[in-house]
């Protein structure tokens, strides 16, 4: 407890009782005990996994093929260079997804029979691209568009891959946003419209900001998922991290470069995963009113 001058005597708290001191000591001890237990169980778990792996009959071969330092370090710069391309594609695709998804979600939340065709189109779009495996969208866009022959010059596979990514992910994100829009209490819309705001104004200034806050964890989840799906553009031939690894693998017949690429993807997405957790925790803290429960 902080010391308080006698002048503010009536505002000060009574000194801490021995009972409360005892309770705090007890809680502190309990907290330390549970940390110790969880540490111990983690170590035991890790040791068991390690023993099972190392004790397996094929461990020598597996280690030399997948975790070979001889191939690990030489592969790293090439694969890392490829990851730069993944990052660029991701940066552009995220902006595209945000724009398309907001428009789609807005269209789907339009009310009234006049807007039926727009609602229908938006619904058909999201149904189609959420249902179709991303790999197939990639093939259709990546090989189908050039086959149409609109352009004499070859279209960049990176561009096509980005478009495919936007098509698929905007349909996911649009549905998440729509769920958020519908989760905002109708009274908020009433209040906004009562101020004289238009449907669009109410959506943009009142509903969407609240909707996005509600679905931030889901949006971040889609973002992290997108981050690794960027690696699939390698099937079109774009030299990204996975493709770079593949090139080395096909020369050496050692799979360590794939592990390198996998690790780099994990490292790349890790800050965003942590950010998601942090945002979720912060939101929980803000909305929690019930103290201990």
């Amino acid at each position: 407890m902080t010391q308080q001058s006698p002048a503010e005597g009536s505002r000060s708290l009574p000194p801490l009782s021995d009972l409360e001191r005892g309770r705090r000591v007890y809680r502190h001890r309990q907290a330390r005990r549970s940390v110790a237990i969880s540490l111990l169980s983690t170590v035991v778990f890790a040791v068991v996994i390690a023993l099972v792996l190392v004790g397996s009959p094929g461990w020598q071969v597996t280690r030399d093929t997948f975790f070979n330092p001889e191939y690990f370090w030489p592969a790293l710069p090439k694969v890392a260079e490829g990851l730069l391309l993944n990052m660029q594609v991701l940066a552009i695709a995220v902006v595209g997804v945000a724009v398309v998804a907001v428009v789609l979600a807005g269209l789907r939340s339009l009310k009234g029979p006049v807007f039926f065709p727009l609602r229908f189109l938006a619904a058909a779009y999201t149904d189609l691209f959420r249902g179709m495996p991303f790999l197939i969208v990639l093939y259709l866009i990546g090989f189908g568009i050039p086959a149409l022959g609109f352009s004499d010059k070859p279209i960049s596979v990176v561009l096509l891959g980005t478009v495919a990514l936007i098509l698929t992910y905007s349909s996911y994100v649009a549905e998440v946003l729509r769920a958020g829009i519908e989760a905002v209490h109708p009274s908020q819309r009433l209040a906004a419209r009562s101020l004289g705001l238009s449907h669009y104004g109410a959506l943009r200034l009142v509903v969407l900001p609240q909707a996005v806050r509600k679905v931030t964890p889901a949006l971040m989840n889609d973002f992290v998922s997108m981050q690794k799906d960027v690696g699939l553009i390698s099937v079109l031939g774009a030299v990204d991290a996975i493709r770079a690894a593949q090139v080395i693998v096909s020369n050496t017949y050692n799979y360590t470069p794939y592990v390198v690429a996998g690790l780099l993807f994990v490292l790349f997405s890790w800050p965003f995963i942590r950010l998601t957790d942090w945002l979720t925790a912060r939101q929980q803290r803000r909305e929690q009113i019930g103290g201990l429960v």
Partner: peptide
């Protein structure tokens, strides 16, 4: 009221419910 129901943890003092010290950290909340 919330402290009496253990929805808020007290910073000091003691709460007895029918004679049982429910502010004890070992209590079955």
């Amino acid at each position: 009221l919330k402290t009496a129901n253990l929805l808020e943890r007290i910073d000091d003092g003691q709460i007895l419910l029918a004679g049982d010290d429910i502010s004890d950290p070992r209590v079955d909340v």
